[in-house]
């Protein structure tokens, strides 16, 4: 296969990690909540899934059941994190930034504790083949396009459809733009905020699980998860708060992020160790460029939700 096409497919597969993370974050932000806990939530999602796989590993279950249980474990753990976040920020109206950062610190730490205790031969070796179905046996980049990759693309598309084509989406966007207005026409603001945050966290958590079990599929994979979490948050800006845009955005990010290791292989260019971090910085540079361009164009549709980061409580006299 052409080396560039190979690289592109791998970028696509790598990007799915961010695709999950930023689709989840977009849903949360559309409800007006800036969730900086995404890195921690992705970590916990990964840890939760691996924990379940580790438990069910010796039971020799049907492959489909393994996938389902693994995904459920990941969802449960990350949605629990989302629930903590929404309880603190929606019900108790705690500062969103502080809460999010605290969750990240908490999630990253707890994940490391859990992952060290798990046995990679149980949670990784067997399940990897199942999750990479149908291309598990290939040696080129196609091997990465497994079940969870397609799920990621589907979720991004469905999220866009829900946000822009359905009644639920209209209400969710209204909550993020102007919760007072939504409240006045009878939308249950608290319910929407909780649901968007928890579902968003669940989706983001799957990204962490996908990274450990499928894309990187190594026992060190969990160490890089936090960085991918921050990239996901940057990707939200790149995608201009549109879930379907994350499919393109995540591929670009994946491409830029891994080109430091690829350039050497493909074109025979040697990249010194010192230059690698510089190249890994590229996704953020691109994000800043996107921010500059959208700020200059100043189109209202490309701006973050108007009440992002603001706690809502009914006006009282």
């Amino acid at each position: 296969m052409n080396v560039w096409l190979n690289f592109l497919i791998e970028s696509l597969a790598f990007g799915a990690v961010f695709m999950y993370g930023s689709t989840g974050e977009i849903l949360t932000e559309k409800a007006g909540h800036l969730n900086l806990g995404i890195p921690g939530i992705m970590c916990m999602g990964g840890a939760g899934g691996c924990l379940v796989l580790n438990i069910i590993g010796p039971m020799n279950l049907h492959p489909v059941l393994v996938v389902i249980l693994g995904v459920l474990g990941s969802l449960a753990m990350s949605m629990l994190m989302g629930l903590i976040y929404s309880f603190l920020t929606v019900t108790l109206r705690a500062n969103q930034n502080v809460t999010g950062l605290a969750l990240t610190t908490f999630g990253v730490g707890l994940m490391k504790v859990i992952m060290i205790k798990l046995d990679p031969t149980v949670y990784l070796v067997g399940p990897k083949k199942i999750f990479r179905w149908p291309f598990a046996e290939r040696t080129d980049a196609l091997q990465y396009l497994g079940v969870l990759f397609f799920v990621a693309v589907a979720i991004a598309l469905i999220a866009s459809w829900v946000l822009y084509r359905t009644k639920v989406g209209l209400r969710l966007r209204a909550v993020g733009e102007n919760p007072g207005t939504a409240d006045a026409v009878g939308v249950n603001v608290t319910k929407y905020k909780y649901l968007a945050t928890c579902i968003g966290s669940g989706i983001a958590g799957l990204g962490g699980f996908y990274n450990i079990i499928d894309y990187q599929a190594s026992q060190e994979a969990y160490l890089s998860l936090e960085a991918f979490g921050w990239l996901s948050i940057a990707l939200v800006i790149f995608a201009l708060w549109r879930p379907h845009m994350t499919i393109i955005g995540s591929t670009v990010f994946g491409f830029l992020f891994s080109c430091s290791s690829y350039i050497a292989n493909i074109e025979g260019i040697t990249v010194t160790m010192a230059a690698k971090p510089l190249l890994k910085m590229l996704p953020y540079v691109v994000t800043i460029l996107v921010l500059i361009i959208t700020s200059i164009r100043n189109k209202r549709e490309n701006q973050p939700p108007a009440s992002l980061g603001l706690a809502y409580f009914r006006e009282e006299r």
Binding site: N178, T181, V185, V187
Partner: peptide, 18 residues
């Protein structure tokens, strides 16, 4: 006014209707 700036007139009008 209690309107969502980013929405069209029609979207604002139907918002919240069951």
């Amino acid at each position: 006014f209690k309107l969502v700036d980013l929405f069209t007139a029609a979207e604002n009008i139907v918002l919240g209707i069951n």
